[in-house]
Amino acid sequence: MEDGERHQFMIFLLFSGERQYGLLACDIQQEEFPFFYVISLQIGLSLRYLEISKAEAARRREMTKDLEVIRERNRILGIMSANDELTGLLNLRGFTEEAKKFCHEEQEQRAYMICGDLDHLKEINDNWGHPAGNFALRSVAEILRGCIRSDDVLARVGGDEFLILLKCTEEGYQETFRKRVKDACIYFNEKSDKPFLVEISLGIAEFCSGPQTDIQQVIATADQFLYEAKKHRRKSIRRP
């Protein structure tokens, strides 16, 4: 040693169970042995607890990452389950949830339920193929998107069927909206180079929102109006 004197060291094994963590070298007297032996056991136990704590912290971090992955996947699945694949609009499930939410949050507010139908989808598919039919359906989605506001709700709920929840408090707005959609279709068809016209029939039902509102009944009423409107559509959407 640097002090030139003789020293007596005692070596203590730092361990816990079968796990060895190191050695503790102590320059002590013989009578101090029991005390430092207990100290070495406590150090070994502390190191064991530290190791366990680090392992648990690592597991918690992994669990947090796994939960984040699960939440993200669930979010994506939720979007997929509530949206129409072809148009990106809500499907019937997503629309119904949004409509119920509106009725619970906005009580005693005038609104309009609109059923829309792409005219003569079967004719398009039969004469020009399903890609043409898909084009027409996506076109209807874009036309209707352009006719509503950002807080209105738009969905494709069937082959050629669309639903709109129009959150409008203006009385008698039905004809105004019909004209807006008709003008949008005319503008679209003027620009389109397709051999067919894209036209939309509408059934519109006015209702007052509230927790007791029967969304399915309101949709059924709008659908009945749509049935009447389809009687007046042209017989063919082939371009003249």
Rank of each mutant, 00 (worst) to 15 (best):
Y112W: 09
M113I: 07
I114M: 04
I114H: 03
G116L: 00
L118T: 06
D119G: 01
H120S: 04
L121Q: 02
K122D: 01
E123N: 05
I124K: 00
N125D: 05
N125V: 07
N127P: 08
N127G: 13
W128G: 06
G129I: 14
G129N: 12
G129D: 06
G129Q: 12
P131R: 11
P131N: 11
A132S: 15
A132V: 13
A132F: 08
G133V: 09
G133T: 09
F135G: 08
F135T: 15
A136M: 00
R138N: 11
R138I: 04
S139Y: 06
S139E: 14
S139W: 05
S139I: 02
S139H: 08
V140W: 00
E142D: 15
E142F: 05
E142Q: 14
I143L: 14
L144P: 00
L144Y: 06
R145Y: 01
C147E: 03
C147F: 11
I148E: 00
R149G: 14
S150T: 13
D151W: 10
D151I: 10
D152P: 06
D152W: 06
D152F: 07
D152A: 07
D152V: 08
L154G: 04
L154H: 05
L154A: 01
A155G: 09
A155W: 11
R156V: 07
R156L: 03
R156S: 03
V157M: 10
G158Q: 10
G159S: 10
E161R: 01
F162K: 00
F162N: 00
F162C: 00
L163Q: 12
I164A: 02
I164L: 09
L165M: 07
L166I: 04
L166G: 09
L166S: 08
G172N: 12
E175H: 13
R178V: 06
K179D: 08
K179Q: 13
R180L: 11
R180F: 03
V181N: 03
K182S: 13
K182Q: 12
D183M: 04
A184D: 03
I186K: 14
I186L: 11
I186Q: 11
F188M: 02
F188N: 07
F188R: 06
E190Q: 15
K191S: 12
S192M: 12
D193L: 12
D193T: 13
D193C: 08
D193M: 07
P195Y: 11
F196V: 00
V198Q: 08
E199F: 03
E199I: 00
E199G: 12
E199L: 10
I200K: 06
L202Y: 01
I204S: 05
I204C: 03
A205N: 04
A205L: 01
A205V: 04
E206S: 13
E206T: 12
E206D: 13
F207C: 05
F207D: 02
C208M: 13
S209C: 02
G210V: 06
G210M: 13
Q212L: 08
T213W: 01
D214H: 08
I215M: 11
I215H: 05
Q216I: 04
Q217Y: 10
V218S: 10
I219C: 12
A220E: 15
A220V: 04
A220L: 07
T221F: 11
A222R: 10
A222S: 12
A222C: 10
D223K: 13
Q224P: 02
L226D: 08
L226Y: 14
Y227G: 05
Y227E: 11
Y227N: 13
E228K: 15
